[in-house]
């Protein structure tokens, strides 16, 4: 049930990002909104639940993207591992941690994508817009990351409450 819920939310974000955002120029510099979602489930879901979701969303993103297969899969997988390690190491899994991880995560994701492009094209010339885009996405992620976090948390709580009411408290996610 939790897998289906988070997968559906993830697919919603993917469709939103690929169909809704491109219609409005204001979102042209927006970062990958699946990243904060991956970090959220990395913090608040056990590995046995979060890993299949992350792999599932990674595969979908790879198949929708023009890049080589595996870039998103790799990025999301290591985000999951990284965030789990951070939460264990710092004993922190709350909203205060979020601005400090979404920004760097978006930065790393962009560097991986660019690295894969550079791997294929040895004479690739990085233009000034690349630095500008990376920097603006980084700043945007720092500012809006926690908003995404709160948004996902609210939906998650509503879903938990719904399940709790539906099952009489037997199968609800207590987290």
């Amino acid at each position: 049930m939790t897998f289906c819920f988070f997968s559906a939310i993830g697919i919603f974000f993917i469709v939103f990002q690929t169909s809704f955002f491109p219609q409005f120029g204001i979102f042209s510099k927006c970062y990958d909104i699946i990243t904060p979602f991956i970090l959220y489930i990395g913090i608040f879901q056990p590995l046995k639940t979060s890993l299949p979701i992350v792999l599932f969303l990674g595969i979908i993103m790879d198949n929708l993207s023009g890049g080589a297969f595996g870039i998103y899969l790799t990025t999301y997988f290591w985000f999951l591992m990284g965030i789990r390690w951070i939460t264990i190491y710092f004993h922190a899994g709350n909203v205060f941690l979020f601005p400090f991880i979404v920004g760097p995560a978006v930065l790393v994701e962009n560097l991986i994508a660019l690295g894969s492009t550079a791997f294929l094209e040895r004479d690739l010339q990085f233009q000034s817009y690349v630095t500008s885009l990376i920097f603006s996405q980084f700043l945007l992620a720092l500012i809006t990351g926690p908003i995404f976090f709160i948004f996902i948390q609210k939906i998650h709580k509503k879903f938990d409450k719904l399940i709790y009411n539906f099952t009489g408290g037997k199968n609800a996610n207590k987290k």
């Binding site: 690929t18 993103m61 929708l64 996405q137």
Partner: peptide, 14 residues
């Protein structure tokens, strides 16, 4: 055109 690439680094449309 019903969709675009999720990554700003690759330029594809659906």
């Amino acid at each position: 055109v019903i969709g675009r690439d999720p990554s700003p680094w690759f330029k594809t449309i659906i």
